[in-house]
Design a protein around this nucleic acid. Sequence first.
DNA 1: CTTTTTATGTCAACCGGTTGACATATAGTA
DNA 2: TACTATATGTCAACCGGTTGACATAAAAAG
Lengths: 325, 325
Amino acid sequence: MKPKIQDVAKAAGVSPTTVSRVLNNRGYISQATKDKVYDAMETINYIPNDLARSLYNQKTNLIGVIVPSTSNPFYGELVAEIEHACNTKGYKVLLCNSLHEADKEQEYWDMLQRNQVDGVIVVTYNRGLVPKNHAAPSVAIDHYISSHMHVVSSDNYQGGEAATQELLSQGCQKPIHINGPLTLDTPANLRRQAYEDVMRENHKDPMTYEIPDVAYLNINMETIKRIFQDHPDVDGIFASDDLLAIKVIQYATSLGYSIPNDLKVVGYDGTDLIQTIYPELTTIVQPIAAIAETSLTVLEKQMKHESQPEKENVLPIQMKKGHTT
Amino acid sequence: MKPKIQDVAKAAGVSPTTVSRVLNNRGYISQATKDKVYDAMETINYIPNDLARSLYNQKTNLIGVIVPSTSNPFYGELVAEIEHACNTKGYKVLLCNSLHEADKEQEYWDMLQRNQVDGVIVVTYNRGLVPKNHAAPSVAIDHYISSHMHVVSSDNYQGGEAATQELLSQGCQKPIHINGPLTLDTPANLRRQAYEDVMRENHKDPMTYEIPDVAYLNINMETIKRIFQDHPDVDGIFASDDLLAIKVIQYATSLGYSIPNDLKVVGYDGTDLIQTIYPELTTIVQPIAAIAETSLTVLEKQMKHESQPEKENVLPIQMKKGHTT
DNA sequence: CTTTTTATGTCAACCGGTTGACATATAGTA
DNA sequence: TACTATATGTCAACCGGTTGACATAAAAAG
C-alpha cells in the first residue's frame, strides 16, 4: 500500500496533524520537527495524494484545454505555450482534442466538469455547447462560444489590414482572399472584413473564396483549383492560414506561376514551425505566447473574483515579410 | 453550492444509496426509479464529482504524458494520437512538456504521482529520473529510460537500413548521416547503426555528423555548414528527422546544389504535417498512431496485471518515396 | 514568578461519493 | 401458502488529507 500521512506520522514519531501542519506551513512548528517529518517522508517514499487534498480544498489546480488537435502546428504551439504558462503558475493541463466534432466537444466539457477543473481554455468551433450551468471560469481563444464567455484573440482586423495592404503595396491589382467557413462565429472573420474594407478603400472589388471544410490538413484543393480557373490573372492571395498559403503556393508553382513575380501570397499564423521550414513565407504572426498567458490571466481573475477581466482581449499581431510578396 | 448526490436523492425522492446504485448500475433498481433519478439529475444540474469517486475507487483514469514539446509536429501528432486512444478507452490525459530539461521531467514525474495517474507515457531524454518507488504503470516511447521500463518504438534499424539503401540505390557514392546527440540512450541510435552496417556491407566508409543540441528548432546550422565545407562532393544525406532534412535541403539549395540531381536527401518521421507541406521529401514514416495505441495497450496490460506485456515493442516503418531522392 | 508565545497532541467533522451489512416490503413463482 | 427474486431504505465505514476546537507543556518574555 502507498504510504499515507498516518505512516509518515508514525515514522517521524509525531501526530498526523503535525505532518499536515508541516506540509501546509500552518501554525507553530519547530525546525527540528520539520526535519524529522521531511526525513520520514523521504525514507518511506511518501507522496501526497492531491486527489484527497483537492477534494477538501475545493481546488484542483487543473485547467482543461480544448483544441481541435495538437497535430496542427498552430494548436500544437498554442497548447505548448498554455501548458508552459500553467506549469509556471502551478496548474496542470487536461488536454482535449475535439477534432472539430460537436459531440466530442460536449463530452469534453462534461468530463472537465466532472473532474472539477478550476478553469477551461477553449479553442473550438461549435457554439452553444457550453452547459448553461457551467460555473467554472472559462475563456475562449479566437472564438465567440457564447455571449457571456470571455475571449482572447489577436487583432484579426489589424492582421487582415496588414496582409491586404502588403499585397497592394507590392503592386497587386487583384488580390483574392481565402478564408475558412464563415458559419463559425470567430473573430478570425474580421480578417476578411478588413480585407474587404481595405479593398474598397482602394476602389477595388473584394473577391473572396471560402474553404468549406475545417478538417485539418484535409484542405479542399478544389477551392484552390477553382480560384485559378476563375481568375488565371490573379496576382495576389491572402490566405487565412499558413498551411493554406503553402498549398496555394505549391499549386500555383505547379501551374507555372513564379512567386512572387506572377503571384504574391500572404499567410496567417506565423508559427515557429512554419517560419523554420518555410522562412520565405510572408505571413501575419500571431502572438501565441501572449495569447496563452493572457488566457490564463483571464481565468485567474475569474477564479479569484478580485477584478472583472475584460470581456474581450485583443493582442497585437506582427507582419513578417518573407519572399512570397 | 454544487449539487451533490444528497441533493439528487432529495429531488428524486429516493435515498442517496439508491442514486449511487443507479449511477453505478449496482443491485436491483426499477426502471421507474432510474428515470426519476436521471430526471432529478437533469433538473438540478447534477454533475458527479470524479475526484471523490477516484479517491474511493483508487483509480483516476488519468494518464500522464510527458513529451519534449507539442510544438514539435512529431510530438504534436503523437500526443494527438495518444489522447485519441485514451479518450476512446475512457482515459484522460495530463499533458507535460519537459522541454528537454531534466529537472522539469523530474518535477512532472512527481506531479503525476501526486495526482494518482493510472499510468505514464513518456518520451523523454534523461535517464535515471524515474523515482525508484514509482509503482504506476509506465511506458517509454523510443527511449530507454531505465532498465525495467517497457519501451515502444518503431523499427529504427529497419528505418536506417531503408534510408541508406534508398540513397545507395539512387546512385549515391558518398552518403552522409546526420543524427542527434548520441549521449541519449535511445533506440533511435539504431538508425545510425543501420546506416553504418549498410555502408560497410557496400564497402563504403560510413561518415556521420552529430547535432550537439537537442533544443527544438534551434537546429545547429553550424553542423550543416561544416558538412558542406568538409565534403563539397557529398551526394546523399540521411537526416535523422524531417526538420533537419528540410534545413539541409534549404542550405544546399542556397549553395547551388540541385536536388535530387546533385544531392539526394532522406528524412525521418514522416508526420502528416511535413507530408502535407513538403510532399516532395523522401522520408521514413513512423507509425505514429500505432505507437500511441501500443503504448496504451502496454499500460493497460500493466494495470490489469493480467498478462505481462513485451518489454520491447517494435513497430514496422514505411518508406515514402518523394522527389528528394 | 507570572504571562505569552511557541510547539505539539487528541479528536472529530468534513470534502463527495461508494459499498457492504442488514432491514423491509412488494411482486412473482412454485 | 411458502419461497424467492426484485426493489429500496438506513447506517456506518472508508478513500486520504485538512482543519478547527481544545488541551497541554515547555520556552521565552515581562
